[in-house]
């Protein structure tokens, strides 16, 4: 199974803790890239610039900020936020993190926790598969400009099912816009050019 490379940013002032955690992450074997934020005022900027998949942040590091407040400020809803607990008393503030790692965890536990975070990319394993017949039908309706409700009626499905199909299509193809789907559909002869919305020819 092909796994996508995961980018970690670790916000931690202690060299020892940072190096230790980086070593444990490195042992997991999949592809990782780790960067570090040493100073609190660089946190937001660095996350914006580096776009990590996972941000590991020491509770003491963010101080008064709550995980949800931090998430809002970072403005990245898909970011996996991991709290790092170096003092036992911080345990009570861990709500709002996707996972917490403690200084007292064994490295095997940390490995498990981190591996468990990756299923967010779970689609990756199926992504090689081509679309099912039903999914192809839905793609062709989407690019012809039908709404989810209209597609549901045409195919006698619930709107909810159509939305689930669309999400699966986006995950399988890694194409998220309907303009992108249009190109895919034409390349794969699911629709003809005249059937899709849009204008503009091949003017140079």
């Amino acid at each position: 199974m092909m796994k996508k490379m995961l980018r970690f940013t670790i916000a931690e002032t202690s060299d020892l803790v940072f190096e230790g955690l980086a070593a444990v992450i490195g042992k997991i074997g999949a592809e990782y890239r780790i960067s570090r934020v040493k100073e609190i005022h660089q946190l937001v900027n660095q996350v914006v610039a580096e776009r990590p998949d996972v941000l590991v942040v020491n509770m003491a590091f963010i101080g008064m900020d709550s995980p949800s407040g931090l998430r809002t400020r970072l403005n990245r809803s898909e970011l996996i936020l991991v709290g790092l607990v170096t003092e036992l008393r911080d345990m009570q503030h861990m709500q709002g993190f996707d996972e917490t790692i403690s200084l007292f965890d064994e490295s095997r536990q940390i490995e498990e926790k981190i591996s468990r975070l990756t299923p967010r990319e779970a689609g990756a394993g199926d992504s090689e598969k081509s679309l099912s017949q039903r999914e192809k039908e839905i793609v062709s309706y989407v690019v012809k400009g039908f709404t989810n409700t209209q597609i549901a009626e045409k195919l006698c499905l619930s709107k909810h099912t159509v939305i689930t199909h669309r999400r699966n299509i986006a995950t399988k193809l890694q194409v998220h816009s309907s303009a992108g789907l249009t190109i895919y559909a034409i390349m794969n002869k699911l629709v003809k050019l005249e059937e899709v919305k849009g204008k503009g020819g091949l003017s140079a």
């Binding site: 303009a179 992108g180 190109i183 034409i186 050019l193 849009g198 204008k199 091949l202 140079a204």
Partner: peptide, 25 residues
């Protein structure tokens, strides 16, 4: 300009139109 040149394959006219529309948008 170079994209248009690269995909102007006669058998793939529709694809080229869709790609260029996407690009122009």
């Amino acid at each position: 300009t170079r994209l248009l040149d690269a995909i102007s394959d006669k058998d793939q006219h529709d694809v080229a139109v869709a790609v260029m529309r996407f690009y122009d948008d």
